[in-house]
């Protein structure tokens, strides 16, 4: 017993150090596994409130620009509503067909955001109270921003496009070939689009947009533009470098995308897979 006490006294600093290191590594591991809901959400409320104060102050500085962007977006939406195609289209629609709204949008403000980490997150000022759920998409007036990862009552945190583990299905506008888009974790202006077959037509400046395969975003939302591309001769695929259209440094007003038929689609897909061998 005496020896034990002696040992403990002698190595108490090392023991404290090792114990605390274990605790931090556990939290890192937990965070990396995305099972961050418990710890992150508890802190999220407190940190979220602090960030709201900060964002309020900063917003005054950006008011003029935000106003202009919103006005531009309003104008383009108005144009879509009044567009002739809507009326012409109506003529062919049977009166007794009812249309269901498939995508709804929850307006949100970015209250915290980073672009220079290996994995970046965006914190929004809307939460479960406003109908936000995990795996909903986030878009800005310019294009795709990310996907909601965790939600608390008043706040939510989205994985930004600039996160090494976010993979999106994407295609070139005007073509039906789709590939997989991912960030490489170094340059905020470069995403990599892979698995577009090398016989597809492509030019620098082409728009890269969302597909419906992820059932997160509506079809055809811009993600970025083609910066450069080369062909992997062995595999017959393009490796395309894409510049994101959203300005991640200046994110302010965004929308959370709610695909209202998502559950129906997921349940159906699960049912179809039921008989598959695991």
């Amino acid at each position: 017993m005496h020896n034990f006490a002696e040992f403990f006294r002698k190595y108490s600093q090392l023991i404290l150090f090792t114990f605390l290191l274990g605790v931090s590594l556990f939290f890192i591991y937990k965070n990396n596994r995305y099972q961050r809901v418990l710890i992150f959400n508890a802190a999220n409320e407190t940190a979220g409130r602090a960030y709201t104060v900060y964002a309020d102050a900063r917003e005054y500085l950006d008011l003029r620009k935000s106003n202009r962007l919103l006005a531009e977006e309003n104008a383009s939406l108005r144009a879509q509503l009044l567009a002739d195609k809507y009326k012409i289209y109506n003529k062919w629609v049977n009166a007794d067909t009812t249309y269901k709204q498939t995508f709804t949008y929850i307006p949100a403000r970015v209250i915290n955001n980073s672009v220079d980490k290996a994995n970046n997150y965006v914190t929004l000022n809307v939460g479960s109270l406003h109908g936000v759920k995990p795996d909903m998409g986030v878009i800005s007036p310019d294009g795709v921003v990310g996907v909601i990862k965790s939600v608390s009552t008043h706040f939510s945190v989205a994985i930004s496009l600039l996160h090494r583990k976010l993979q999106l299905s994407a295609r070139l506008r005007g073509s039906s070939f789709f590939g997989s888009l991912q960030w490489q974790g170094t340059d905020e202006n470069t995403l990599v689009l892979e698995y577009i077959p090398s016989y597809a037509e492509i030019a620098v400046g082409d728009t890269v947009e969302t597909t419906t395969y992820s059932s997160i975003f509506p079809e055809g939302i811009a993600i970025g533009t083609v910066k450069s591309f080369d062909v992997d001769a062995d595999e017959g695929y393009f490796r395309i470098l894409v510049k994101p259209t959203s300005e991640f440094r200046k994110l302010n007003n965004v929308y959370v995308v709610n695909f209202t038929l998502k559950e129906e689609q997921l349940i159906l897909e699960q049912e179809a897979r039921k008989g598959d061998p695991k």
Partner: peptide
């Protein structure tokens, strides 16, 4: 010192959403 180092990093982690990165 050891404890304060951990505590300070941990508080920063809670703001950054980085788990225990700064703490470690």
């Amino acid at each position: 010192i050891i404890f304060l180092g951990f505590l300070m990093g941990f508080i920063v982690d809670q703001f950054m959403g980085t788990g225990g990165l700064h703490a470690a």
